[in-house]
């Protein structure tokens, strides 16, 4: 409750300031997209929307995340059974982290030191020290773990298991699974709110998003989706992005080719944005003014303007784009060498 007031103030400030700003200060960012079928990563410049480079990575790259300083890119190369550490500037492989079998998604602890990796094929979560490249623990979870998230205070990690249909809660201090919360069929992605009080979990086959109270580990609200002219079983929620201002949640709805816009305070679905075919995941730019989506079947990325909630661009990437991660362009461009 106490956190509420300042958040409003920030939102208000942003609103009033916007008309006077003119051209925004540089919000240049680079969007990194894993192409599951091509074994590559495409890099898109957020201002020109051009693919500036494409570099090869391990086999079947899916989950992707940046180190806190944006200088290292972690890529789950699922079929190579490794998490690769890559120099985002030139695509050079810096290291292969021990990852356990078939890593699919992962999450980095807030201090940037620990990577929690969901091992889809052997029902474990592997915890890796990013600095020493050593495995700190392998934790038994449900079958086909996929979604991973770490709470903003770094104390709790969660993984979702797609066949067991649960959210497994991991105590980071003891690295033990301490509880499990059943959710709808095939939970795929988990996302904490910024205050760490709420966890959003998408269920692909259940067709829902569970809003879970972190303190009690119980489902507080279940969001359902309905799109005119689209069969309900084609609405398959996967990726979720939450804006820092607490206003919007964006939910990628798979083969319905749409992203749902949800009011993150009332949990009401306020609209659907048509994107490319079979949308998997979404990511917000550092300025939170753009949302990008990876569209697996059409092989492209849709760019959505967060202010107007409209799709403004489509960028062709490789085959089966799956994951997306975004970093601000380093000062001085940084990239062109």
């Amino acid at each position: 409750m106490t956190a509420r007031a300042p958040r409003h103030r920030i939102a208000l400030l942003a609103l009033t300031a916007a008309p006077f700003l003119g051209p925004a200060p540089s919000r240049a960012a680079e969007i990194f997209v894993t192409n599951e079928r091509d074994n590559t990563v495409s890099v898109i410049d957020s201002e020109s929307y051009a693919v500036t480079r494409t570099f090869p990575v391990g086999r079947r790259p899916r989950g992707v995340v940046f180190s806190k300083d944006g200088k290292r890119l972690f890529v789950c190369a699922s079929d190579s059974d490794s998490v690769q550490v890559i120099d985002p500037d030139d695509g050079k492989l810096l290291a292969n982290l021990p990852s356990g079998e078939d890593p699919e998604q992962f999450a980095l602890s807030p201090d940037g030191r620990t990577l929690f990796i969901a091992n889809e094929n052997n029902a474990t979560t592997t915890v890796v020290d990013v600095e020493t490249h050593s495995v700190k623990a392998q934790i038994d979870v449900g079958i086909e773990p996929e979604g991973m998230a770490v709470s903003p205070d770094g104390k709790t990690a969660v993984t979702t298991s797609e066949t067991t249909n649960m959210v497994h809660w991991i105590d980071v201090a003891t690295l033990a699974a301490i509880d499990a919360t059943p959710v709808d069929q095939r939970p795929r992605h988990a996302e904490f709110t910024r205050d760490g009080k709420t966890l959003w979990v998408s269920s692909e086959i259940g067709g829902t998003v569970a809003v879970i109270d972190v303190a009690t580990r119980t489902v507080r609200h279940t969001i359902r989706f309905e799109i005119k002219g689209v069969a309900s079983d084609r609405i398959q929620p996967v990726g979720i992005s939450l804006t820092d201002d607490g206003r919007h949640a964006f939910v990628a709805l798979g083969p319905s080719d749409r992203v749902a816009v949800v009011d993150a305070r009332t949990f009401e679905v306020t609209g659907y944005i048509l994107v490319g075919r079979r949308v998997w995941h979404t990511a917000l730019t550092p300025g939170q003014d753009r949302l990008v989506t990876t569209n697996g079947v059409s092989g492209d990325v849709t760019v959505i303007d967060v202010a107007t909630l409209k799709a403004i661009r489509t960028v062709k990437v490789g085959r089966y784009p799956w994951g997306a991660a975004i970093r601000p362009v380093p000062p001085g461009g940084g990239v062109a060498k």
Partner: peptide, 9 residues
């Protein structure tokens, strides 16, 4: 598979 799930409850 069922037992891998069931043990959590």
């Amino acid at each position: 598979d069922s037992n891998a799930t069931g043990r959590f409850v």
